[in-house]
Design a protein around this nucleic acid. Sequence first.
DNA 1: CCTACCGATCGGTAGG
DNA 2: CCTACCGATCGGTAGG
Lengths: 196, 196
Amino acid sequence: MIETGARRRAIDEVASELFHANGYAATSVRDIARALDIQGASLYAHVASKEDVLWSIVDRAATAFEASAERAIIETPDADPTERLAALVEAHIETITANPQHSSVFVTEWRHLSGARRTTIAARRDAYEARFRSTIETGVSVGAFHAMDPAIASTFLLTALNGISTWYRPDGRLSPDRIADHYIELALHSLSEDHR
Amino acid sequence: MIETGARRRAIDEVASELFHANGYAATSVRDIARALDIQGASLYAHVASKEDVLWSIVDRAATAFEASAERAIIETPDADPTERLAALVEAHIETITANPQHSSVFVTEWRHLSGARRTTIAARRDAYEARFRSTIETGVSVGAFHAMDPAIASTFLLTALNGISTWYRPDGRLSPDRIADHYIELALHSLSEDHR
DNA sequence: CCTACCGATCGGTAGG
DNA sequence: CCTACCGATCGGTAGG
Protein backbone atom coordinates (compact mmCIF):
# COMPACT_ATOMS: atom_id res chain seq x y z
CA MET A 1 0.00 0.00 0.00
CA ILE A 2 1.45 3.29 -1.12
CA GLU A 3 0.54 6.17 1.11
CA THR A 4 -0.91 9.04 -0.87
CA GLY A 5 -1.72 11.62 1.82
CA ALA A 6 -0.84 15.30 1.64
CA ARG A 7 2.22 14.78 3.82
CA ARG A 8 3.47 12.01 1.60
CA ARG A 9 3.17 14.25 -1.44
CA ALA A 10 4.95 17.06 0.41
CA ILE A 11 7.84 14.69 1.06
CA ASP A 12 8.18 14.02 -2.67
CA GLU A 13 8.07 17.73 -3.41
CA VAL A 14 10.84 18.80 -1.03
CA ALA A 15 12.86 15.68 -1.80
CA SER A 16 12.72 16.30 -5.54
CA GLU A 17 13.93 19.86 -4.97
CA LEU A 18 16.85 18.64 -2.87
CA PHE A 19 17.70 15.75 -5.20
CA HIS A 20 17.53 18.15 -8.13
CA ALA A 21 19.77 20.72 -6.43
CA ASN A 22 22.33 18.43 -4.77
CA GLY A 23 21.76 14.90 -6.02
CA TYR A 24 20.23 11.87 -4.30
CA ALA A 25 23.41 10.59 -2.67
CA ALA A 26 24.35 14.01 -1.27
CA THR A 27 20.91 14.52 0.25
CA SER A 28 20.30 12.97 3.66
CA VAL A 29 17.00 11.83 5.12
CA ARG A 30 17.49 14.54 7.72
CA ASP A 31 17.87 17.20 5.00
CA ILE A 32 14.43 16.23 3.72
CA ALA A 33 12.95 16.20 7.23
CA ARG A 34 14.44 19.60 8.06
CA ALA A 35 12.76 21.13 5.01
CA LEU A 36 9.47 19.83 6.39
CA ASP A 37 10.21 20.98 9.95
CA ILE A 38 10.04 17.52 11.39
CA GLN A 39 12.58 15.13 12.90
CA GLY A 40 14.57 12.82 10.65
CA ALA A 41 13.13 9.71 12.22
CA SER A 42 9.59 11.04 11.78
CA LEU A 43 9.93 10.67 8.04
CA TYR A 44 9.71 6.93 8.55
CA ALA A 45 6.10 7.30 9.64
CA HIS A 46 5.43 7.99 5.96
CA VAL A 47 8.06 6.14 3.97
CA ALA A 48 9.83 2.83 4.41
CA SER A 49 13.19 3.98 3.04
CA LYS A 50 15.07 6.80 1.37
CA GLU A 51 15.07 4.85 -1.86
CA ASP A 52 11.27 4.63 -1.75
CA VAL A 53 11.17 8.43 -1.96
CA LEU A 54 13.44 8.39 -5.01
CA TRP A 55 11.36 5.63 -6.55
CA SER A 56 8.07 7.46 -6.15
CA ILE A 57 9.52 10.60 -7.77
CA VAL A 58 11.11 8.68 -10.65
CA ASP A 59 8.09 6.46 -11.22
CA ARG A 60 5.76 9.41 -11.28
CA ALA A 61 7.99 11.37 -13.67
CA ALA A 62 8.31 8.37 -15.96
CA THR A 63 4.52 8.05 -16.01
CA ALA A 64 4.20 11.75 -16.83
CA PHE A 65 6.55 11.41 -19.82
CA GLU A 66 4.77 8.30 -21.04
CA ALA A 67 1.30 9.82 -20.67
CA SER A 68 2.19 13.04 -22.47
CA ALA A 69 3.83 11.17 -25.37
CA GLU A 70 0.76 8.93 -25.56
CA ARG A 71 -1.48 11.97 -25.62
CA ALA A 72 0.61 13.63 -28.33
CA ILE A 73 0.29 10.55 -30.51
CA ILE A 74 -3.45 10.16 -29.96
CA GLU A 75 -4.03 13.83 -30.70
CA THR A 76 -2.18 13.63 -34.04
CA PRO A 77 -3.66 10.39 -35.45
CA ASP A 78 -2.70 10.81 -39.09
CA ALA A 79 0.40 12.93 -38.68
CA ASP A 80 3.32 12.48 -41.05
CA PRO A 81 6.73 11.74 -39.44
CA THR A 82 7.64 15.43 -39.30
CA GLU A 83 4.42 16.38 -37.51
CA ARG A 84 4.63 13.34 -35.25
CA LEU A 85 8.17 14.15 -34.20
CA ALA A 86 7.26 17.78 -33.57
CA ALA A 87 4.39 16.60 -31.37
CA LEU A 88 6.69 14.27 -29.41
CA VAL A 89 9.29 17.00 -28.90
CA GLU A 90 6.64 19.46 -27.78
CA ALA A 91 5.12 16.96 -25.35
CA HIS A 92 8.54 16.15 -23.92
CA ILE A 93 9.37 19.80 -23.31
CA GLU A 94 5.95 20.45 -21.78
CA THR A 95 6.50 17.63 -19.34
CA ILE A 96 9.94 18.89 -18.37
CA THR A 97 8.97 22.52 -17.91
CA ALA A 98 5.80 21.57 -16.00
CA ASN A 99 8.01 19.98 -13.36
CA PRO A 100 11.74 20.42 -13.92
CA GLN A 101 12.65 19.00 -10.49
CA HIS A 102 10.87 15.69 -10.99
CA SER A 103 12.12 15.52 -14.56
CA SER A 104 15.74 16.14 -13.72
CA VAL A 105 15.62 13.58 -10.91
CA PHE A 106 14.17 11.11 -13.40
CA VAL A 107 16.85 11.92 -15.95
CA THR A 108 19.91 12.01 -13.69
CA GLU A 109 19.22 10.12 -10.45
CA TRP A 110 17.47 6.92 -11.56
CA ARG A 111 20.79 5.06 -11.50
CA HIS A 112 20.67 5.18 -7.70
CA LEU A 113 17.67 2.85 -7.76
CA SER A 114 18.53 -0.76 -7.05
CA GLY A 115 17.47 -4.11 -8.41
CA ALA A 116 14.16 -4.51 -10.18
CA ARG A 117 13.28 -0.84 -9.96
CA ARG A 118 16.37 0.16 -11.87
CA THR A 119 15.77 -2.51 -14.47
CA THR A 120 12.15 -1.46 -14.88
CA ILE A 121 13.03 2.19 -15.37
CA ALA A 122 15.74 1.32 -17.88
CA ALA A 123 13.17 -0.65 -19.87
CA ARG A 124 10.62 2.15 -19.71
CA ARG A 125 13.24 4.64 -20.88
CA ASP A 126 14.08 2.36 -23.78
CA ALA A 127 10.43 2.03 -24.75
CA TYR A 128 10.03 5.79 -24.57
CA GLU A 129 13.08 6.40 -26.73
CA ALA A 130 11.80 3.78 -29.20
CA ARG A 131 8.88 6.07 -30.01
CA PHE A 132 11.29 8.75 -31.16
CA ARG A 133 13.49 6.25 -32.94
CA SER A 134 10.68 4.57 -34.88
CA THR A 135 9.25 7.93 -35.90
CA ILE A 136 12.68 8.84 -37.26
CA GLU A 137 12.96 5.48 -39.01
CA THR A 138 9.64 6.02 -40.72
CA GLY A 139 10.64 9.53 -41.70
CA VAL A 140 13.86 8.28 -43.26
CA SER A 141 12.08 5.51 -45.19
CA VAL A 142 9.48 7.87 -46.67
CA GLY A 143 12.12 10.44 -47.55
CA ALA A 144 10.99 13.12 -45.11
CA PHE A 145 14.27 12.88 -43.19
CA HIS A 146 17.75 12.55 -44.63
CA ALA A 147 19.60 9.24 -44.46
CA MET A 148 20.96 8.72 -40.97
CA ASP A 149 21.32 6.26 -38.14
CA PRO A 150 17.97 6.53 -36.32
CA ALA A 151 19.40 5.25 -33.04
CA ILE A 152 22.08 7.93 -33.03
CA ALA A 153 19.62 10.60 -34.10
CA SER A 154 17.13 9.78 -31.35
CA THR A 155 19.90 9.74 -28.75
CA PHE A 156 21.21 13.07 -30.03
CA LEU A 157 17.73 14.54 -29.80
CA LEU A 158 16.69 13.11 -26.44
CA THR A 159 19.90 14.09 -24.67
CA ALA A 160 19.46 17.64 -25.97
CA LEU A 161 15.84 17.65 -24.78
CA ASN A 162 16.64 16.16 -21.39
CA GLY A 163 19.30 18.80 -20.89
CA ILE A 164 16.47 21.30 -20.52
CA SER A 165 15.63 19.80 -17.13
CA THR A 166 19.04 20.79 -15.81
CA TRP A 167 19.13 24.42 -16.99
CA TYR A 168 15.46 25.46 -17.17
CA ARG A 169 14.33 28.08 -14.65
CA PRO A 170 10.68 29.22 -14.48
CA ASP A 171 11.86 32.82 -14.14
CA GLY A 172 14.32 32.52 -17.01
CA ARG A 173 14.54 34.50 -20.23
CA LEU A 174 12.38 32.16 -22.32
CA SER A 175 8.93 30.75 -21.61
CA PRO A 176 8.35 27.02 -22.05
CA ASP A 177 6.49 27.78 -25.29
CA ARG A 178 9.38 29.77 -26.73
CA ILE A 179 11.85 27.07 -25.74
CA ALA A 180 9.64 24.49 -27.42
CA ASP A 181 9.43 26.61 -30.57
CA HIS A 182 13.20 26.87 -30.81
CA TYR A 183 13.85 23.23 -30.00
CA ILE A 184 11.24 21.96 -32.45
CA GLU A 185 12.85 24.03 -35.18
CA LEU A 186 16.35 22.81 -34.33
CA ALA A 187 15.16 19.21 -34.07
CA LEU A 188 13.30 19.21 -37.37
CA HIS A 189 16.15 20.98 -39.15
CA SER A 190 18.62 18.42 -37.85
CA LEU A 191 16.61 15.59 -39.40
CA SER A 192 14.84 16.97 -42.43
CA GLU A 193 15.96 16.11 -45.94
CA ASP A 194 15.22 19.46 -47.46
CA HIS A 195 13.57 22.19 -45.43
CA ARG A 196 11.33 24.83 -47.02
CA MET B 1 52.43 21.93 -4.60
CA ILE B 2 50.41 19.40 -6.52
CA GLU B 3 51.77 15.90 -6.39
CA THR B 4 52.17 14.43 -9.87
CA GLY B 5 53.64 10.96 -9.22
CA ALA B 6 52.42 7.74 -10.77
CA ARG B 7 50.39 6.88 -7.68
CA ARG B 8 48.71 10.25 -7.72
CA ARG B 9 47.70 9.73 -11.34
CA ALA B 10 46.44 6.24 -10.55
CA ILE B 11 44.19 7.75 -7.88
CA ASP B 12 42.62 10.06 -10.45
CA GLU B 13 42.11 7.15 -12.84
CA VAL B 14 40.28 4.85 -10.44
CA ALA B 15 38.41 7.76 -8.87
CA SER B 16 37.16 8.99 -12.23
CA GLU B 17 35.91 5.49 -13.02
CA LEU B 18 34.04 5.29 -9.72
CA PHE B 19 32.70 8.86 -9.94
CA HIS B 20 31.60 8.13 -13.50
CA ALA B 21 29.87 4.88 -12.53
CA ASN B 22 28.29 5.88 -9.21
CA GLY B 23 28.71 9.62 -8.75
CA TYR B 24 31.02 11.61 -6.49
CA ALA B 25 28.76 11.68 -3.44
CA ALA B 26 28.06 7.93 -3.58
CA THR B 27 31.78 7.09 -3.81
CA SER B 28 33.69 6.90 -0.54
CA VAL B 29 37.37 7.51 0.00
CA ARG B 30 37.59 3.86 1.00
CA ASP B 31 36.04 2.79 -2.31
CA ILE B 32 38.86 4.54 -4.10
CA ALA B 33 41.47 3.06 -1.79
CA ARG B 34 40.07 -0.46 -2.19
CA ALA B 35 40.40 -0.21 -5.97
CA LEU B 36 44.08 0.59 -5.43
CA ASP B 37 44.54 -2.16 -2.81
CA ILE B 38 45.55 0.21 -0.09
CA GLN B 39 43.94 1.36 3.16
CA GLY B 40 41.51 4.27 3.14
CA ALA B 41 43.70 6.38 5.35
CA SER B 42 46.70 5.76 3.10
CA LEU B 43 45.08 7.82 0.39
CA TYR B 44 45.83 10.88 2.48
CA ALA B 45 49.54 10.36 1.91
CA HIS B 46 48.79 11.54 -1.65
CA VAL B 47 45.82 13.87 -1.44
CA ALA B 48 44.63 16.40 1.11
CA SER B 49 40.92 15.72 0.67
CA LYS B 50 38.31 13.86 -1.34
CA GLU B 51 37.34 17.10 -3.05
CA ASP B 52 40.95 17.57 -4.19
CA VAL B 53 40.60 14.36 -6.19
CA LEU B 54 37.42 15.62 -7.83
CA TRP B 55 39.08 18.94 -8.51
CA SER B 56 42.11 17.46 -10.22
CA ILE B 57 39.88 15.34 -12.49
CA VAL B 58 37.56 18.22 -13.34
CA ASP B 59 40.39 20.71 -13.84
CA ARG B 60 42.25 18.38 -16.12
CA ALA B 61 39.15 17.56 -18.16
CA ALA B 62 38.33 21.26 -18.50
CA THR B 63 41.86 21.89 -19.74
CA ALA B 64 41.53 19.07 -22.25
CA PHE B 65 38.32 20.55 -23.68
CA GLU B 66 39.84 24.02 -23.83
CA ALA B 67 43.04 22.83 -25.47
CA SER B 68 41.29 20.76 -28.13
CA ALA B 69 38.92 23.61 -29.02
CA GLU B 70 41.90 25.96 -29.21
CA ARG B 71 43.70 23.52 -31.48
CA ALA B 72 40.63 23.15 -33.70
CA ILE B 73 40.46 26.91 -34.13
CA ILE B 74 44.16 27.33 -34.83
CA GLU B 75 44.10 24.52 -37.36
CA THR B 76 41.20 26.09 -39.30
CA PRO B 77 42.37 29.72 -39.44
CA ASP B 78 40.16 30.98 -42.24
CA ALA B 79 37.23 28.65 -41.80
CA ASP B 80 33.72 29.89 -42.48
CA PRO B 81 31.18 29.47 -39.63
CA THR B 82 30.04 26.07 -40.92
CA GLU B 83 33.57 24.69 -41.06
CA ARG B 84 34.46 26.28 -37.74
CA LEU B 85 31.46 24.75 -36.02
CA ALA B 86 32.20 21.35 -37.53
CA ALA B 87 35.76 21.61 -36.21
CA LEU B 88 34.53 22.53 -32.73
CA VAL B 89 32.03 19.65 -32.67
CA GLU B 90 34.66 17.21 -33.86
CA ALA B 91 37.17 18.40 -31.26
CA HIS B 92 34.57 18.12 -28.51
CA ILE B 93 33.67 14.55 -29.44
CA GLU B 94 37.33 13.58 -29.72
CA THR B 95 37.95 14.86 -26.21
CA ILE B 96 34.98 12.98 -24.81
CA THR B 97 35.71 9.67 -26.49
CA ALA B 98 39.42 9.90 -25.63
CA ASN B 99 38.45 9.85 -21.96
CA PRO B 100 34.73 9.39 -21.28
CA GLN B 101 35.22 8.94 -17.53
CA HIS B 102 37.02 12.24 -17.01
CA SER B 103 34.61 13.96 -19.37
CA SER B 104 31.47 12.69 -17.69
CA VAL B 105 32.82 13.63 -14.27
CA PHE B 106 33.52 17.10 -15.64
CA VAL B 107 30.04 17.34 -17.13
CA THR B 108 27.98 15.92 -14.27
CA GLU B 109 29.95 16.13 -10.99
CA TRP B 110 31.47 19.61 -11.01
CA ARG B 111 28.59 20.93 -8.91
CA HIS B 112 30.04 19.04 -5.93
CA LEU B 113 33.02 21.38 -5.96
CA SER B 114 32.81 24.14 -3.40
CA GLY B 115 33.61 27.82 -3.29
CA ALA B 116 36.11 29.30 -5.71
CA ARG B 117 36.67 26.05 -7.58
CA ARG B 118 33.04 25.78 -8.48
CA THR B 119 32.92 29.42 -9.55
CA THR B 120 36.03 29.01 -11.65
CA ILE B 121 34.71 25.96 -13.46
CA ALA B 122 31.37 27.65 -14.11
CA ALA B 123 33.25 30.55 -15.70
CA ARG B 124 35.42 28.26 -17.80
CA ARG B 125 32.35 26.37 -18.98
CA ASP B 126 30.74 29.67 -19.95
CA ALA B 127 33.84 30.73 -21.88
CA TYR B 128 33.92 27.39 -23.65
CA GLU B 129 30.26 27.60 -24.60
CA ALA B 130 30.81 31.17 -25.81
CA ARG B 131 33.03 29.80 -28.60
CA PHE B 132 30.14 27.76 -29.92
CA ARG B 133 27.70 30.61 -29.40
CA SER B 134 29.78 33.25 -31.18
CA THR B 135 30.44 30.91 -34.09
CA ILE B 136 26.68 30.42 -34.39
CA GLU B 137 26.10 34.17 -34.13
CA THR B 138 28.54 34.81 -36.95
CA GLY B 139 26.93 32.11 -39.03
CA VAL B 140 23.51 33.64 -38.57
CA SER B 141 24.73 37.13 -39.44
CA VAL B 142 26.43 36.01 -42.69
CA GLY B 143 23.40 33.92 -43.65
CA ALA B 144 25.07 30.52 -43.36
CA PHE B 145 22.73 29.53 -40.52
CA HIS B 146 19.01 30.17 -40.31
CA ALA B 147 17.65 32.82 -37.98
CA MET B 148 17.67 31.52 -34.42
CA ASP B 149 18.56 32.30 -30.83
CA PRO B 150 22.31 31.54 -30.69
CA ALA B 151 22.24 30.98 -26.92
CA ILE B 152 19.51 28.37 -27.23
CA ALA B 153 21.17 26.75 -30.22
CA SER B 154 24.54 26.42 -28.48
CA THR B 155 22.88 24.99 -25.37
CA PHE B 156 20.91 22.54 -27.51
CA LEU B 157 24.08 21.45 -29.23
CA LEU B 158 26.37 21.23 -26.22
CA THR B 159 23.91 19.24 -24.11
CA ALA B 160 23.54 16.78 -27.00
CA LEU B 161 27.33 16.54 -27.33
CA ASN B 162 27.93 16.19 -23.59
CA GLY B 163 25.39 13.40 -23.49
CA ILE B 164 27.91 11.27 -25.37
CA SER B 165 30.03 11.09 -22.21
CA THR B 166 27.24 9.28 -20.41
CA TRP B 167 26.41 6.64 -23.03
CA TYR B 168 29.66 6.15 -24.96
CA ARG B 169 31.36 2.77 -24.55
CA PRO B 170 34.72 2.03 -26.24
CA ASP B 171 33.41 -1.41 -27.24
CA GLY B 172 30.12 -0.01 -28.54
CA ARG B 173 28.60 -0.27 -31.99
CA LEU B 174 30.09 2.94 -33.35
CA SER B 175 33.68 4.17 -33.36
CA PRO B 176 34.42 7.72 -32.18
CA ASP B 177 34.93 8.76 -35.80
CA ARG B 178 31.55 7.42 -36.88
CA ILE B 179 29.84 9.09 -33.93
CA ALA B 180 31.55 12.35 -34.85
CA ASP B 181 30.42 11.99 -38.49
CA HIS B 182 26.80 11.53 -37.45
CA TYR B 183 26.83 14.28 -34.85
CA ILE B 184 28.50 16.78 -37.17
CA GLU B 185 25.86 16.11 -39.79
CA LEU B 186 23.01 16.45 -37.28
CA ALA B 187 24.53 19.59 -35.79
CA LEU B 188 25.11 21.32 -39.12
CA HIS B 189 21.68 20.34 -40.41
CA SER B 190 20.06 21.75 -37.27
CA LEU B 191 21.64 25.14 -37.91
CA SER B 192 22.09 25.53 -41.63
CA GLU B 193 19.90 27.81 -43.67
CA ASP B 194 19.80 25.69 -46.76
CA HIS B 195 21.84 22.55 -47.01
CA ARG B 196 23.16 21.18 -50.31
C1' DC C 1 51.81 3.30 3.25
C1' DC C 2 50.17 1.11 7.89
C1' DT C 3 47.55 0.81 12.47
C1' DA C 4 44.72 2.96 15.48
C1' DC C 5 41.62 6.18 16.21
C1' DC C 6 38.51 10.63 16.04
C1' DG C 7 33.88 13.05 16.04
C1' DA C 8 30.15 13.46 12.96
C1' DT C 9 26.73 11.72 10.40
C1' DC C 10 24.41 8.13 7.92
C1' DG C 11 19.82 5.31 7.19
C1' DG C 12 16.85 3.22 10.04
C1' DT C 13 14.24 0.97 14.44
C1' DA C 14 11.72 0.72 19.04
C1' DG C 15 8.37 2.29 21.67
C1' DG C 16 5.44 5.51 22.74
C1' DC D 1 5.15 12.66 14.88
C1' DC D 2 8.53 12.53 19.03
C1' DT D 3 12.59 10.87 21.95
C1' DA D 4 16.09 7.82 22.38
C1' DC D 5 18.92 4.95 20.35
C1' DC D 6 21.36 1.43 16.98
C1' DG D 7 25.46 -0.25 14.20
C1' DA D 8 27.78 1.19 10.17
C1' DT D 9 30.20 4.25 7.75
C1' DC D 10 31.81 8.78 6.63
C1' DG D 11 36.10 12.01 5.74
C1' DG D 12 40.07 12.77 7.99
C1' DT D 13 44.26 12.91 11.66
C1' DA D 14 48.26 11.16 14.59
C1' DG D 15 52.18 8.85 14.79
C1' DG D 16 54.97 5.84 13.08
